[in-house]
Design a protein around this nucleic acid. Structure first.
Length: 461
RNA sequence: GCGCCGGUGCCCGAGCGGACCAAGGGAACGGCCUGCAAAGCCGUAAAGCCGCGGGUUCAAAUCCCGCCCGGCGCUCCA
């Protein structure tokens, strides 16, 4: 049984699916106007892992993540660069997709763009208006928050508590009936992109976008809605209010991942610790896997730390998986063997960890525990080595941790093969000077040679 | 200010009432293996008594109270 922490109920509870065997998952995607940063990466990886694991458990998952391609920030950016909003959005959407690809994040099954769903949004707003839960001002259409029962449930705050702190950071529009009321539709300002509507030209508010696309694609009562925990209020609270306002059932489970700190504090341009995913990826080719390992080693609901030292240590750890994969390639031992209880134990522990609120840190601990056991198996020439190695690699793959296929890195390079065999010949002749010289040469080519009992093996790290 | 979440070894980070198990990763140290390395293994080796102070309990890192520190939210930010 799979359990997840649900923000609404405030407890870890069994995943109750709308339809047995099928999971509908909506995770809030990015507003495309700038470089994705490490926080985006953590969030995307979190839901990628959730999706992969559910699939690994045999469930059929429909993963939807939106692209917000119309927003104040996009408009500002377009204006400052003298370009059109669609141009800006398209540029950054492409960057985002490319970065996610490099991070090993599977493309969601659907990635709707907000601008392609405006008709549905207009219809949704009309329904809310007809239900008497919205009103119009010069600035747009607003949802009457007080008319929705349990509005603040997701943040666990009453309307009065919310009102008490409303405006702490932003001034309140005087035309609104209640400072908490939020925009469903924003009247167009001169020069801004706009769409026609019963309330005049304008554009949709942020929350109605996600509410329309999630319900439009996944249907009422879809299973999981996820996003960063900074979205709990107002974004998710407001999406939920929109659905409730027209009597529709919204997400059955709310999942929120925690934020990330760089060098001990929150990432911010003003603090000088702001890091884009591209910068991290360009620093070292293996940082994609290293970062994913770091994400996995911290529980998704806890603030995680990232810095260069941690990335470096994670790279080292990932290499142990590669080394194990190489041993497996060298000694696949495909012979049928009796049911290995050690493999069953590994799977049992792995599943138990993951089933309990996505316990990736413990799952990773299980993986590394078994890396050692598999190596011990290989060392003692037991069939258990290959069996465990395969299970370990499978478990790692379920978390999206790709392990290099050693057989791919060998083969196409006859020059390297030649150097390796010349070195081996020198070794056999106990000509250590020549052997070491050749090892240097290979090293310069980016090749590492390991002398194993069954002869030399080489790979590119 | 109000609300929520955290503070565990040199670093990161599990565990959240009880088997003396404080996982796992990195770093460091000592062995084994190796011509030397690399990779790998072993270590009753070194390293936490779990932010501070009270309390509850037969039993607390795990529950309660207070304090200190950090993070997030308080209208468009993952």
């Amino acid at each position: 049984m799979i359990s997840l922490y649900d923000t609404l109920s405030g407890e870890v509870r069994p995943l109750e699916l709308r339809e047995p065997g099928q999971v509908s998952l909506y995770a809030c995607g990015p507003t495309v106007y700038d470089h994705p940063h490490l926080g985006h990466a953590r969030s995307a990886i979190t839901y990628d892992v959730l999706r992969r694991y559910l699939q690994w458990r045999g469930l059929q998952v429909c993963h939807v993540a939106n692209i917000t391609d119309i927003d104040d920030k996009i408009i500002d950016r377009a204006r400052s660069q003298g370009r059109s909003e669609p141009e800006v959005a398209a540029e950054w959407e492409a960057v985002y997709r490319n970065v996610m690809d490099r991070l090993g994040v599977l493309p969601p099954h659907q990635q709707p763009r907000a601008t392609e769903w405006v008709d549905a949004m207009v219809a949704f707003i009309a329904a809310i208006t007809e239900a008497g839960k919205a009103y119009t001002t010069a600035a747009g259409v607003y949802l009457r928050v007080g008319s929705v029962d349990g509005y603040g449930d997701l943040v666990k705050r009453s309307l009065d508590e919310l009102r008490a702190s409303a405006g702490a950071r932003v001034e309140v529009d005087e035309d609104k009936e209640d400072p908490l009321d939020f925009a469903l539709w924003k009247a167009a300002k001169p020069g801004e992109p706009s769409w026609p509507s019963p309330w005049g030209a304008g554009r949709p508010g942020w929350h109605i976008e996600c509410a329309s696309m999630s319900l439009g694609i996944l249907g009422d009562g879809f299973d999981i809605h996820g996003g960063g925990n900074d979205l709990v209020f107002p974004h998710h609270t407001n999406e939920r209010a929109e659905a409730l306002a027209v009597g529709r059932t919204f997400a059955r489970h709310w999942v929120h991942n925690a934020m990330l700190n760089v060098d001990g504090t929150k990432m911010a341009k003003s603090l000088g610790n702001y890091r884009t995913v591209e910068d991290m990826l360009n620093e070292h080719p293996d940082n994609a896997r290293a970062f994913r390992l770091l994400v996995l080693q911290t529980h998704y609901r806890k603030t995680m730390e990232v810095n260069s030292e941690l990335l470096a240590s994670a790279r080292t750890a990932v290499q142990r998986l590669d080394a194990l994969a190489r041993r497996l390639t060298a000694d696949p031992n495909t012979q049928p063997v009796p049911e290995a209880s050690s493999v069953a134990e590994l799977l049992r522990r792995f599943r138990a960890a993951m089933d309990h609120d996505l316990g990736t840190p413990e799952a990773i601990a299980v993986v590394f525990d078994n890396v050692r056991k598999a190596n011990t198996g290989f060392d003692s020439a037991s069939a258990e080595g290959a069996l465990l190695a395969r299970a370990v690699l499978d478990a790692a793959a379920a978390l999206g941790l790709a392990v290099e296929d050693a057989s791919q890195s060998v083969g196409d390079d006859a020059g390297v093969e030649e150097l390796v065999s010349r070195r081996q010949a020198a070794r056999e002749a106990k000509d250590w000077a020549t052997a070491d010289e050749l090892r240097e040469e290979l090293s310069a080519l980016g090749v590492v040679v390991e002398d194993t009992p069954s002869g030399p093996k080489w790979h590119r790290p």
